[in-house]
Design a protein around this nucleic acid. Structure first.
Lengths: 221, 221
DNA sequence: GCCATTGGAGAGTAGCACTATCTAATATTG
DNA sequence: CAATATTAGATAGTGCTACTCTCCAATGGC
């Protein structure tokens, strides 16, 4: 495959592909002459991965590179490799330990956690943001969220395990890629569903309100 | 309150506050002389709202302005006003109708939706991203997500209703602000919990793997 | 043989969110 | 009341990101 074909197949402009090559986000093609190189399926797949991370996940290229680095050379222990990769995913918070809001709430609801994980910092930042906006979330409410999410998460983890052939030991890079993509690509699905369901419930309860078009809006909530 | 006090109280630098004033994200203070103006609680609260949207929600300032515009002058019909405000929240997708993946899946799982809402476009983009990455999500799986999220969303909607005094008709701007903040600030909580629970489940199943530190990593998944 | 394409590299661009600097007027403090 | 600090308001500049443009010389395909 030549660069123009790779561009056509991926929907990414040739100059952008060249830029990714320069930046090391895409490995160079196999050089067939001084002015020609050929690309294969692996390049197309890598390009799709990069674009997914950027467009769906909203990662800056520097973070994409961090994810790719972990895939290329994962830490030897699975948990560490996965943590490394997940730490490169947004949101990027500046919060510094101790994460009192997050850890005390999690302790209260009895959820085990790794106090150094990036998700703790994210939770802390989110809880702090709610507090700053005057809408604090207490541990009980957090626990109710956690209970529902546990159902979702358990099913997801089971699905990952189920689709693997237990006879074939998985490559760690594949596991990490699965988890990173499962994390980053499914998140917008969950959020979109939440918004859609909110909208459906809201409309259900305000059916009459909008029909008139421009009646005085204050009533009914 | 003088600008320096407002800066101290909010943690936002004076030049940044001036910038927000110029950009119309913050209403001007009450001028007490040619070179002095005084700010009050409402300015502090507005500043906190802006910073929450920017820092926790990750909104660009242009979108913050769109949200504030809706708060200042909401469409007369509640549903329209809320949709307008939610359309300003990320993620910002470029997808154009028809949203076949999203609508056909939602039809199949029997969830009513507004085909013009931004959440539909987000769902379409997310499903397309999963497909591009070779991990398509079918309607059945989507339905299982929706079932759990329905539980969460229903509780959230009930909570909003419960905290309002039914005797006092709500201002539409307040309702919109509630929903916008409830949407944007709670989303990171949900995502952080999902990641934390994934990590907990993952560690549970890989307890031995990481202990040795640098054994060959391929096994066990 | 000849025109389009390519690899490679540097420079340029657009958008965003500030940040710096300046001026003239006013407030505060010793 | 004089000296110092602060302020509103405005313009210009900065740092960063993610491309996008432009060139060049060397092919590749018709």
């Amino acid at each position: 495959m030549r660069i123009s074909e790779l561009a056509a197949a991926s929907g990414v402009a040739v100059p952008t592909i060249k830029y990714y090559l320069r930046e090391g986000l895409l490995p160079p093609g196999r050089a067939t002459s001084a002015t020609q190189a050929s690309y294969d399926e692996s390049h197309l797949q890598r390009l799709r991965l990069v674009r997914s991370l950027v467009e769906v996940g909203g990662l800056p290229l520097a973070k994409v590179r961090a994810v790719l680095d972990v895939l290329a050379d994962p830490a030897p222990a699975p948990y560490t490799a996965v943590s490394d990769a997940l730490a490169a995913l947004p949101p990027y918070v500046v919060e510094t330990p101790p994460f009192v809001r997050a850890t005390s709430a999690l302790d209260e609801i009895g959820l085990a956690y790794d106090p150094t994980s990036s998700a703790i910092a994210q939770l802390e930042a989110a809880l702090a943001g709610l507090e700053a906006a005057g809408r604090p979330l207490d541990a009980a409410a957090l626990g109710r969220y956690a209970a529902q999410i546990m159902v979702i998460a358990r099913r997801e983890v089971d699905a990952v395990e189920a689709q693997r052939d237990p006879e074939v030991p998985a490559e760690l890079a594949d596991v990490v890629e699965d988890i990173v993509l499962g994390t980053i690509l499914v998140e917008p699905v969950i959020l979109a569903l939440r918004r859609l369901i909110h909208a459906a419930l809201f409309r259900e309860r305000h059916q009459g309100d909008s029909a008139a078009g421009d009646q005085k809006p204050a009533a009914s909530r």
